[in-house]
């Protein structure tokens, strides 16, 4: 497994199902051609499919960069008693993809990682990922709170904000994150208004005049018929 392949499998194995496993089983066989990364179709046009394929098979971050991203992701969103961490939800793979998809992220993130290491070197004479947990948190504490950041650390704040945005968006659009958030939709159902206990909690109620204009879900399957004045008779 060459370097390119190993990063690919760290990043994209999860996206691509079996690829990571296959990649590992060929470790040492450097002549093996890189595996093509694919992604299950989600209703793409052929042009879009092609673009996705190209992006999926490019590697943007080097090993150090992606390792730094993974550490930051889990500082931003560690696991708790019910749900896994950002890396458990495969957020680094999402970050790798999105910087290729939205190229405006590339320079700020790459430069941001360098800034972070510079800062870390100054404080502790080692790169960020080699710092211990306390040291890492001491660094993050100085750049994680907008409007409290010292002027010369503003590039760090900007980078951390970018990383927090992408970590949260990556997590809350993952299967785990959606469950954590508690989103209940995206399936066939019959909307029949706000649950009674929610109305009560908010001190609201539907007024009768309005409800009279609303659908009676019991006869939604009856084909609509109107009288000449536009009154529904079914």
């Amino acid at each position: 497994m060459n370097r390119r392949d190993s990063i690919k499998s760290i990043l994209l194995g999860s996206l691509a199902g079996g690829v990571a496993l296959q990649g590992c089983s060929t470790e040492g066989a450097s002549e093996v051609a890189p595996k093509e990364i694919t992604f299950p179709d989600y209703g793409r046009t052929s042009k879009e499919q092609l673009r996705d394929k190209v992006l999926l098979n490019e590697v943007f971050f080097n090993e150090h960069e992606i390792a730094t991203i993974a550490v930051l992701c889990d500082i931003i969103l560690p696991s708790n008693e019910n749900f896994g961490s950002a890396t458990d939800a495969e957020v680094p793979a999402f970050v790798e993809f999105i910087v290729k998809d939205i190229e405006e992220y590339q320079l700020p993130l790459r430069g941001g990682i360098m800034w972070l290491d510079n800062f870390s070197n100054k404080l502790y004479n080692k790169e960020f990922i080699s710092c211990d947990e306390l040291e890492q948190k001491n660094i993050c504490d100085q750049i994680a709170y907008p409007e409290e950041t010292e002027l010369e650390l503003l590039p760090g704040e900007k980078f951390f904000t970018n990383m927090r945005n992408l970590t949260l968006t990556g997590y809350y659009t993952s299967k785990m994150g959606i469950e954590d958030l508690g989103y209940k939709g995206n399936g066939p159902n019959i909307w029949d208004g706000i649950p009674a206990e929610v109305l009560e909690k908010h001190g609201l109620k539907y007024d009768e005049e309005w409800l009279a204009k609303c659908v009676n879900q019991e006869n939604r399957s009856n084909i609509a018929v109107w009288d000449d004045d536009g009154n529904l008779t079914t």
Binding site: F39, Y42, D52, F94, D101, K175, I178
Partner: peptide, 15 residues
């Protein structure tokens, strides 16, 4: 009825 994670860009507007 597709989920955001069925897109590698999670539904972003780049395509």
């Amino acid at each position: 009825l597709k989920w955001p994670y069925e897109s590698p860009r999670r539904g972003a507007s780049s395509s």
